[in-house]
Design a protein around this nucleic acid. Structure first.
Lengths: 335, 335
DNA sequence: CTGTTAGCGCCTTCAT
DNA sequence: ATGAAGGCGCTAACAG
């Protein structure tokens, strides 16, 4: 059942029907009578516009493409998808997704594929926050970088968690609880390509230093439960007596927790702990970990909004705040 | 740059160009000369077919829609997306996704939206394995149910993990290690709508009973770390002395582990443990948990394949085997 | 206020 | 072996 049919049934021309069904009857001053007839006919015949035809005609698809290295595989990052999808849906768009596995060739192919399909916008997302070398992204349709940024390019739109601010938050959490003389940071790994760790660390340092407090000591470890357990274990065996630690993510926190436990240290009684990510894991551990959350859903939402309504943003670079997920891993210090 | 342009540049008619570019030159016996000219022209001009036009003309979009209650939010289930996307990609299709949050109204809207867009197939996925009341799904395009099934409908295509077989596997894991007189199952929750628990349990029971072993005892608990910890805790306090337990999922295993530890029971020295899901969590725990894995990626792949190539399947109901993720939580019993 | 007309870019039957 | 012509369903000038 085509627009023609509806028009015929309502005894108007296709044009009139088109305008009415697209909610533009006002600007054409169409008779209320015709309007009703058309709407009823459409309803009665179960008319649905043919999107392919509309697409061809308008060179627009109400579709936004999301290319990712592996967003849909990450265990939390998928919330980015959810957020983006929801926001896109709000605005009458659907999400076309594809993963590249990080392979540049597939990346190009997928990109072309999406452009061929005339997506109205593109989100280029990475699982882990990082700096990328500019892939050959077009200027039209609008592209937004999600969870990544192009080194030194401030004009390219991008959405990132405010890791630095998150670092400050984490530090403040401990400072407010009375710790300050010494804060230990677990998990800085100089080898990682990811931006998150260093940014979080700088945030922590800045917060401490601004208050005239000493820089934190650092325990290096991979971002992995088992590695962290081992690293913290030997650190403790070397005689460390931490009172307040910041783990650079929840998996490290889990490993640290296990190590503390093995060493007879109790959280939060003997050592207070704060971490990052705000994953479900933080809530599963005992005690529940207080964690500075990566706002994945929000990131996705903002990215989609940025694609569909760039004008609603003043800056091309959007930092999304990292809220705190409260747990029971911080004890207020009583002197 | 349109097909016209290419044809003109190659000095052939659009028809000829079309046939060549669609790899159908053979069936039209087009001159090798023309073929080369067209291909070169296309290459030189950077010709890309207009998908919208093709869509309109062929009433086909090389697109498959994936509607889910919240797949993209689950912490592992997103691998379904990955699998589906990869398989679709293999076959030259892109995935159009949308979440409904389980709301029937949005569900209908999204469905219509996808049909309007002429998707070539649909996957209807649920995060948790369950039986659903038939939503108003069409017969065309082909629809495949992913991780869910319509009560009593055996014609409807669906893809599910073989939970029952997984239950057997879990039981066998323990039996092969020398346990058998008593196996305890933790996590059966009669209130849950999900199919997985009961199916896993039946698999376990069947395996035991077939070998003439007693039925397992059951500890009821929610599928949640904290609940499980509490439930197992009181179970132990009531005097239970388990030797071999099957946790109905990894989060329960985590809770149970914590409870065992609190009670001074060590895994696997004092009690052997097997669980389900095969999530990353299983590898993070100490000891690493041996877990019967939900093959999410595979499920997604199979679903996509089923949509695009139904003929490759003999049965409408596909059960995907649940492989074992080996951990260190089972000790071979020495009598 | 409404209808006529002309494509959007491609595929495909039919004629040559 | 190739070209001409029509139409997929819709929108938007332009006329009335």
């Amino acid at each position: 059942v085509t627009l023609q049919d509806v028009a015929k049934a309502a005894m108007v021309s296709p044009t009139t029907a088109s305008y009415i069904l697209n909610g533009r009857s006002a600007e054409m001053r169409i008779s209320a009578d015709a309007e009703v007839r058309v709407r009823q006919a459409a309803e009665r015949l179960g008319y649905r516009p043919n999107r392919s035809a509309q697409n061809l005609r308008t060179a627009t698809t109400r579709t936004i493409g999301l290319i990712s290295d592996s967003v849909a595989s990450g265990h939390y990052a998928n919330n980015m998808l959810r957020g983006a999808s929801a926001e896109a849906g709000e605005r009458g768009h659907l999400l076309l997704i594809s993963e590249t596995g990080g392979d540049p060739k597939t990346e190009r192919d997928v990109l072309d594929e999406m452009l061929d399909r005339q997506v109205d916008g593109l989100i280029y997302a990475t699982l882990v926050t990082l700096e990328i070398d500019p892939p050959l992204l077009p200027e039209v349709p609008p592209v937004v970088l999600l969870n990544c940024t192009v080194l030194g390019d401030t004009t390219r739109r991008s959405v990132l968690p405010d890791e630095h601010g998150g670092g400050r938050t984490a530090a403040r959490l401990l400072l407010d609880a009375g710790y300050g003389e010494r804060v230990d940071v677990i998990g800085l790994d100089p080898n990682l390509r990811a931006l998150a760790g260093p940014a979080r660390f700088r945030g922590i340092v800045d917060e401490l230093v601004e208050r005239g407090l000493p820089k934190p000591t650092v325990v290096a470890t991979d971002w992995d439960v088992v590695e962290a357990r081992t690293a913290v274990g030997s650190w403790l065996r070397e005689g460390a007596r931490p009172e307040a630690v910041i783990c650079l993510n929840d998996r490290i926190a889990m490993g640290a927790l296990q190590a503390f436990e093995s060493a007879g240290l109790r959280v939060p009684d003997d050592v207070s702990l704060v971490s990052f990510d705000g994953s479900e894991l933080a809530g599963w551990l005992r005690p529940r970990i207080t964690s500075v959350t990566i706002p994945y859903t929000r990131l996705g939402e903002v990215a989609a909004r940025m694609v569909l309504a760039p004008d609603e943003f003043d800056s091309a670079q959007q930092l999304v705040a990292m809220p705190v997920l409260e747990g029971d891993s911080v004890r207020v210090r009583t002197p």
